[in-house]
């Protein structure tokens, strides 16, 4: 990697400490020409109210999703997006965002589908940056377009589709990261969130419920490796030989868990089912458990 990793000791134990940066590190690298900071939020206007100086905005809905098909942008769309945001193939791309980095994790995961090598997450996200009183600005950068090669999206290794999940029932671990109420079928949507259109409630048979929040501290940072291993390895029994699929409602909270399992614990085979409950709860004749 052209840009050295954040040497902060709190990251040392993680399987891939180079995937995280601290607010201190980021503050010191804002002018590094090899680093681009991208904000990805749940609320589409949060970036406009003020963001980390120099950060570009990557919106999960208008930038990463195809406007017509329910899918991500294709290789041309992604290359065009990266170019427009001043991101080269070798750029160190640091994501951060609101709401415990849900959408930042999601955007990082999408960039990983296109094989962007050096993707990192700001530990603690927007919440921690602001809590520490660090500088924000409403100035929107106008980066010079970068050259980004058109690179195919590899859905096979990091992404699961409905049929993969169906085949996984009884054969591999499924992790439902939603709230207990959504998992049990008592709720069709997140507490306090709008109903997002799932006709049936419950969970995929055999899926275990490990709410995403268990991996996070209240300040938005990730819990220590020991804490994470206690949850996912000791309690849930996930191992390095497992083929894990995580899902939530539309794939953003499960991106958070995907990041934890892949980059912090270091499990080699974890996929995110981005169709998640909004697809499964509407699909005809798929099995559901309550």
């Amino acid at each position: 990697m052209p840009v050295e990793r954040d040497p902060a000791p709190q990251f040392d134990a993680y399987a891939h400490p180079e995937r995280l940066v601290s607010t201190e590190w980021l503050a010191a690298h804002l002018d590094d020409p090899n680093v681009v900071v991208a904000e990805s939020d749940e609320d589409v206007l949060v970036y406009e109210t003020g963001h980390i100086p120099g950060a570009v905005k990557i919106d999960w809905h208008s930038d990463l999703n195809d406007p017509l098909t329910r899918d991500y942008v294709d290789e041309n769309g992604f290359a065009e997006l990266m170019s427009r945001k001043g991101i080269g193939r070798d750029t160190t791309l640091v994501f951060y965002g609101d709401n415990f980095n849900w959408w930042a994790s999601y955007a990082l995961w999408v960039a990983s589908l296109f094989g962007h090598a050096d993707v990192r997450l700001l530990d603690g996200g927007r919440q921690k940056w602001i809590a520490e009183g660090r500088e924000i600005t409403t100035d929107v950068p106008a980066p010079a377009p970068a050259t980004y090669p058109v690179t195919p999206r590899d859905d096979a290794s990091l992404r699961a589709f409905k049929d993969d999940v169906l085949a996984h029932i009884g054969t591999g671990p499924l992790v439902d990261v939603r709230s207990p109420g959504e998992y049990s079928g008592e709720l069709s949507h997140m507490p306090d969130y709008p109903q997002e259109g799932a006709i049936r409630t419950g969970h995929v048979p055999t899926a275990v419920n490990v709410p995403w929040k268990r991996a996070a501290n209240d300040d938005g940072t990730f819990r220590s490796l020991a804490d994470l291993r206690a949850i996912y390895v000791e309690e849930q029994g996930l191992t390095e030989t497992d083929d894990v699929i995580a899902y939530c409602r539309i794939g953003e909270r499960s991106s958070h868990t995907w990041f934890v399992l892949t980059h912090l614990i270091g499990l080699p085979r974890v996929r995110n089912y981005d169709g998640s409950w909004v697809e499964w709860g509407n699909a005809v004749r798929v099995p559901i458990e309550k």
């Binding site: 589409v44 809905h61 208008s62 709008p194 997002e196 259109g197």
Partner: peptide
């Protein structure tokens, strides 16, 4: 086209 249609429901709510 800017805000996901599902999130726009906040307005009608």
């Amino acid at each position: 086209e800017l805000i996901s249609p599902l999130r726009l429901r906040g307005m009608s709510a």
